[in-house]
Amino acid sequence: MTYLHDIDPIALHLGPVQVHWYGVMYMLGFIAAWMLGRRRIRAGRLPGIDEQAFGDLLFYAMLGVVLGGRIGYILFYAFGDFLKNPLMLVRIWEGGMSFHGGLLGVMAGVWFWCRRRRVHFMDAMDFVAPLVPLGLGFGRIGNWIGGELWGKPTGGSWGVIFPRSLPDPYLHMPMQQLRELHAKGALDVFARHPSQLYQAMLEGVVMASVLWWYSSRPRPRYAVGGMFALLYGLFRFLVEFVRMPDEQIGYIAWGWLTEGQLLSVPLIVLGVFWLWLSRRQPTLQPAPQAS
Rank of each mutant, 00 (worst) to 15 (best):
M1R: 15
D6Y: 03
H13A: 15
H20G: 06
M25T: 02
L28T: 00
I31T: 11
L36N: 07
G37W: 01
I41R: 06
G44D: 09
L46Q: 06
D50Q: 09
Q52Y: 03
F54K: 05
L58P: 01
Y60N: 15
A61E: 01
M62K: 08
G64K: 06
G64P: 11
V66W: 09
G69H: 01
R70L: 06
L83V: 10
K84T: 00
K84V: 02
P86T: 05
M88V: 10
M88P: 14
L89V: 05
W93L: 14
G101I: 02
G101R: 03
L104E: 00
L104N: 01
L104H: 00
G105A: 08
C114E: 04
R115H: 07
D123P: 14
M125G: 08
D126N: 11
V128P: 12
L131V: 03
L134D: 04
F138D: 06
G139Y: 00
W144F: 14
W150F: 13
G151S: 08
G151C: 12
K152Y: 00
G156A: 15
S157G: 12
S157F: 00
M173I: 01
H182F: 04
A183E: 03
A183S: 05
D188G: 15
H193P: 09
Q196Y: 00
Q199L: 13
V205C: 13
L211S: 09
W212E: 08
Y214C: 13
P218G: 09
V224D: 03
L230N: 05
Y232A: 07
Y232Q: 10
L238C: 15
R243S: 01
I249T: 02
G250H: 07
G250R: 10
W254A: 15
W254L: 15
W254G: 12
W254C: 15
G260M: 03
L263S: 02
S264Q: 07
L267R: 04
V269A: 14
F273P: 02
L275I: 06
Q281V: 01
P282E: 06
T283G: 10
